[in-house]
């Protein structure tokens, strides 16, 4: 009898499951359509563009369908330093943002847990920069760090800085800008996990002879790993493709160009669409590979 009860249970549940999946499909449809129209279609178009060849005797920016694999090899060879620089800058900015955000998120999420008002006030301060346009904020930093700005003038007056020194246009300024602009994306997911961190685990760690530092390393960090992973991804991915901070119009110079700047100039200035498309796809592929490895290792907690 018991066996037959088990056997009949799934059969009885089946129509309900089928109906639910049908409803789920209807609910998913707008999202699927949206992705098809605005993600898959442009992606396919981008792939086609990346293989196009110039029209002989045609206008600038006139290309025809083809299979020019050299678009990839040429652009990678030509822009390799920019690609490497993009990932190097993004990595540094991500690490800096993590180092700055973790204590901040820990303070808001754990230390002032008993004071919801202080908590919301501090969170508002973290998000506050979003109320001003990204471009304006970056321009403001350009002003502050410019050669006539207070920082450079002050440092020169104190003879800490050489008289021909600059801050804008240096890798420092670009990494600073990236870090600054992406800190909220790091802080918020970290806060979300740390806010739910059960301090009793920390007490248990202390009770079991772990010093505060060891407790942090062995208990707090592993338990906040989901926040660390999502925060670093939300920072690293957009930072690697960013072209505002590194642009000469903002905090960078020709010496700090990242792959995003190369894509931008090929697309908008030289109208070399196939190269821009090829670079975009290379950027996307490299990010996917890095993120794939990272998430897999984070899942097994090898990172700690």
């Amino acid at each position: 009898m018991a066996f037959s009860a088990f056997a009949s249970a799934p059969a009885a549940a089946e129509p309900a499951v089928r109906r639910r999946s049908w409803i789920a499909l209807v609910l998913l449809l707008p999202g699927i359509l949206y992705l098809l129209l605005f993600f898959i279609t442009p992606l396919i178009s981008l792939v086609f563009t990346s293989f196009q060849q110039p029209v002989i005797n045609g206008d600038i920016g006139q290309y025809s369908a083809g299979f020019q694999w050299s678009n990839y090899t040429d652009s990678v060879v030509q822009y390799l330093p920019l690609i490497l620089r993009a990932f190097g800058y993004a990595l540094l900015a991500t690490l800096l943002a993590l180092v700055i955000s973790y204590p901040l998120a820990y303070f808001i999420g754990v230390k002032v847990r008993g004071f919801p008002l202080v908590q919301s006030l501090l969170l508002t301060l973290v998000i506050a920069p979003f109320f001003i346009s990204f471009l304006l904020r970056t321009l403001a930093w350009k002003q502050i760090m410019s050669d006539e700005g207070p920082i450079v003038v002050g440092l020169k007056a104190l003879s800490i800085f050489p008289s021909d020194g600059h801050i804008t246009g240096t890798p420092f300024a670009v990494i600073f800008g990236l870090t600054y602009n992406f800190i909220p994306f790091m802080t918020l997911p970290l806060y979300a996990t740390l806010e739910r961190l059960d301090v009793r685990y920390i007490e248990a760690g202390n009770d079991l002879y772990a010093s505060p530092f060891t407790t942090f390393r062995k208990i707090t960090v592993p338990l906040s790993l989901p926040g660390i992973v999502s925060g670093t991804l939300l920072t690293f991915i957009p930072a690697a493709g960013d072209y505002i901070n590194a642009s000469g119009d903002f905090l960078g110079s020709a010496q700090t160009s990242m792959v995003g700047n190369a894509i931008e100039s090929n697309f908008l200035v030289t109208q070399n669409y196939p190269v821009a498309a090829a670079l975009s796809i290379v950027l996307m592929a490299v990010i996917l590979i890095i993120v794939g490895f990272y998430v897999r290792r984070a899942g097994t907690e090898d990172l700690i």
Binding site: R200, Y201, E203, A204, D207, L208, S211
Partner: peptide
């Protein structure tokens, strides 16, 4: 002295077993 320096261990009411 700090908790980790004391020759004392606790069985917590909530157990507080490390979930990871």
């Amino acid at each position: 002295t700090k908790p980790f320096q004391r020759p004392v261990n606790t069985v917590f009411q909530s157990y507080a077993l490390f979930p990871h």
